[in-house]
Design a protein around this nucleic acid. Structure first.
Lengths: 330, 330
DNA sequence: TAATTCTATCGAAACGTTTCGATTATAGAT
DNA sequence: ATCTATAATCGAAACGTTTCGATAGAATTA
């Protein structure tokens, strides 16, 4: 691999001249630049980005960490990040935050291979985040509630969305409403429960223990929850699944057993993943502004990188999307 | 940011001693190692990965480039990559290959910030790939047909899958079959057409020009193709959409106009994305082994990295998945 | 002509590691 | 006490850039 030194030699100039010539610095004479460019060509020289990063003490790269890359709405999030990052001359890369020791999280964050990161993963330990964040590595956390220096936060209004969609169910006359929750670590799952409980209280409806079931945001856990409910003998009037994946699992369990949605039981989810438009019946859910989440988070990252100090947490609105599964004719 | 030098000073040893102590080299006495560890602690020292990469002349990082990160089946591909990469001590990162100058593709590949890459993007220029590949940067291409030094290939059997699913339609008695193709650059789209044409020929059915329509793999283009077909007055007996996204667009156009699938017209897609199970009717399609594509590609990458020279292209089998949209009762 | 300002180029240090060969301290053998 | 083998540590070079201050020559001014 040819280095800048080889180019300098071939062109008969010094290394420093090559370096500045390559960034079109007007200090170098046009004729010498040409000579240098020829040398570059003939040697197939490509600058070594790592050497550059080391010298510059920055990488112009930022990372997005996701718990599992396959999540159905992450692509929009990443688009949002991408659009803003590119306009700042940065390259976003996406990495999976799981995998244990020696993995991307270590390599990129601990060993400073990126200038900043956006993190969407309820499982990453709080003290890891606080330890690793710093003036040279601001971190923007999505849907987490961690305070710390150089740690910033953007969250969707899970509680508000959950409140609104629960109100929707209540207004349709349902009172016996089951709640299928997410894993206990996930703040967004907790907030969704809070919104649900607040709406129930608002209508003066008591929560029933047997209708509060814990899942883990997977389709299978939704399926299992449906089976649990069915085993209780009588179904509730409605079910609020804390995310769409679980709602889809529930739908599958019901369809296999000929339980009709929404006639026998109404069902709503959360997230508005693409699939919800295609299920039978289409799923009422709460839309999360994923693209906006990406752009806002990235903007905050650049403000932090620019040295801005006090950046307040951002809360983004969510929106109820009413479809057939909740029983409203439209 | 504390450097190894600071640690050395604080611990009262030389830089080199710290360096080897930190990798548990038995040459350094236990007591000094402890002293060093304390210094690391109190200074909050974190090794600088970039300096290390520069010195080592490798990054232990590989990239996966996707044309758009949102593609519905990429997550499985990436899981496959991840599983193999981790077992080799490598961190895969995912980046989007679009975005023009100064973007991830440049930064990571041209400037050698990764040790190798897997690329799934029909739009990346052939000469770029050949120019950038080299002994220090093997490239594994997915669904592309480019030959070159240090360029390796893994492909799904698009042609075979298309042949088989077309045979399925023919065996069900359909003769007038429309083909909705992908963008002309995409090799996989071309192969799917080849398989389709071969099956038609096999049954002695002529292709009709009016039934050969070009799309671009998006849902909208499928919708548009359906509209085109409808405008012709009489529908074909069956439609083969070169990917599921377009098939879904077609389905939407038909459902909006009360054209019944499969009663009025049969429909098949390609890819077996998750959505195909949930559409009404569920979509007959061809399953691509995406996870396997990821693992195989990554294994090849590591063989190349290990210096293996002649690695032959791999072809992975696809499988027809028969669901309701093609009309077969099951 | 001498002094001054540009213009074009160069040399060297620095970024933070790793590693090789050299050096010193410690112990064991003669 | 001297020599040798081993253990523990050190110093310096190298990885490939960027950039600052220096330098030499050409052009301008007095």
């Amino acid at each position: 691999m040819a280095t800048i030194k080889d180019v300098a030699e071939r062109a008969g100039v010094s290394v420093s001249t090559v370096s500045i010539a390559l960034k079109r610095d007007p200090r170098v004479k046009e004729s010498t630049r040409q000579r240098i460019l020829e040398a570059v060509q003939s040697l197939g020289y490509r600058p070594n980005g790592i050497a550059r990063d080391l010298k510059m003490q920055q990488t112009q790269t930022m990372a997005v960490f996701l718990h599992d890359l396959g999540g159905p709405f992450y692509s929009e999030l990443v688009s949002g990040v991408q659009d803003v990052a590119l306009s700042h001359g940065y390259s976003p890369i996406v990495a999976c935050s799981v995998g244990g020791k020696g993995v991307a999280l270590e390599r990129l964050l601990v060993e400073n291979r990126v200038d900043g990161a956006i993190i969407l993963d309820p499982y990453i330990k709080e003290d890891f985040i606080r330890r690793v964040a710093g003036p040279t590595l601001p971190l923007v956390l999505l849907d987490r509630d961690i305070e710390g220096a150089y740690v910033y936060r953007v969250t969707s209004d899970h509680e508000g969305g959950a409140f609104n969609v629960t109100m929707h169910l209540l207004e349709m006359g349902h009172r016996q409403i089951a709640f299928i929750g997410g894993p206990s670590v996930s703040v967004d799952g907790q907030l969704r429960f809070r919104g649900f409980a607040r709406a129930m209280k608002h209508f003066g409806v008591d929560l029933q223990n047997r209708l509060m079931i814990h899942g883990d945001f997977t389709e299978q856990s939704g399926y299992a929850a449906a089976v649990t409910l069915l085993s209780q003998g009588r179904l509730p009037e409605a079910i609020f699944a804390a995310n769409d994946e679980m709602a889809i699992g529930i739908l599958r369990a019901f369809s296999e057993r000929s339980v009709r949605v929404p006639d026998d039981v109404a069902l709503v989810g959360f997230d508005d993943i693409r699939l919800t438009q295609y299920t039978t019946p289409a799923l009422t859910t709460v839309h999360q502004p994923m693209y906006e989440l990406g752009t806002v988070a990235t903007q905050i990252l650049f403000r932090a990188l620019a040295g801005e100090k006090s950046i307040t947490p951002v809360l983004l609105e969510t929106q109820v999307v009413i479809r057939a599964s909740s029983g409203l004719r439209h």
